[in-house]
Simulated scan of single mutants.
Amino acid sequence: MSQFLDKAKTYVTEKINDMAKPEARVTDVDFKRVSKDNIDYLAKVAVRNPYSTPIPICEINYSFKSASREIASGTIPDPGSLKAKDTTMVDVPVKVPYSILISLAKDIGADWDIDYQLDLGLIIDVPVIGNFTIPLSHNGELKLPTLSNMFA
Results as ranks from 00 to 15, higher is better:
M19F: 08
M19A: 12
A20L: 13
P22F: 05
E23V: 08
E23P: 00
A24K: 10
A24D: 11
A24Y: 05
R25W: 03
T27K: 12
T27H: 07
D30T: 05
F31E: 09
K32I: 01
R33V: 14
S35F: 14
S35R: 15
D37P: 06
N38C: 14
N38A: 15
I39P: 06
D40L: 02
Y41C: 08
Y41A: 08
K44V: 02
V45N: 01
A46G: 12
A46Q: 10
V47F: 01
R48Y: 06
R48H: 05
P50C: 02
P50H: 01
Y51E: 04
Y51V: 01
Y51C: 02
P54Q: 05
I55H: 02
I55N: 00
P56I: 12
I57R: 01
C58D: 07
E59R: 15
E59S: 13
N61C: 09
N61T: 13
N61L: 14
N61Q: 14
Y62R: 07
S63A: 13
S63H: 09
S63P: 05
F64K: 12
F64M: 15
K65T: 02
K65S: 09
S66Y: 11
S66L: 12
S68Q: 15
R69K: 14
R69D: 09
R69S: 12
I71F: 12
I71P: 07
A72D: 10
S73G: 07
S73K: 14
S73C: 11
T75E: 08
I76G: 03
I76D: 03
I76R: 05
P77I: 12
P77E: 13
D78W: 10
D78F: 14
P79D: 04
P79A: 04
S81V: 00
S81I: 00
S81A: 10
L82D: 01
L82N: 05
L82K: 04
L82H: 04
K83H: 00
A84K: 08
A84T: 03
A84C: 11
K85Q: 11
K85E: 06
D86Y: 11
D86G: 06
T87W: 00
T88K: 10
T88W: 10
M89H: 02
V90F: 11
V90N: 11
V90P: 07
D91V: 00
D91W: 00
V92R: 03
V92Y: 02
V92P: 04
P93K: 02
P93W: 01
V94K: 01
V94A: 02
V94G: 00
V94M: 04
V96P: 01
P97A: 13
L101T: 04
L101C: 06
S103K: 15
L104Y: 00
L104T: 00
A105P: 04
A105H: 13
K106Q: 03
K106L: 03
K106R: 06
D107G: 11
D107W: 03
D107V: 06
I108K: 07
G109S: 14
G109L: 15
A110Y: 10
A110Q: 11
D111P: 06
W112L: 12
W112H: 14
W112A: 12
D113G: 14
I114S: 04
I114H: 04
D115K: 15
Y116S: 07
Y116R: 09
Y116L: 08
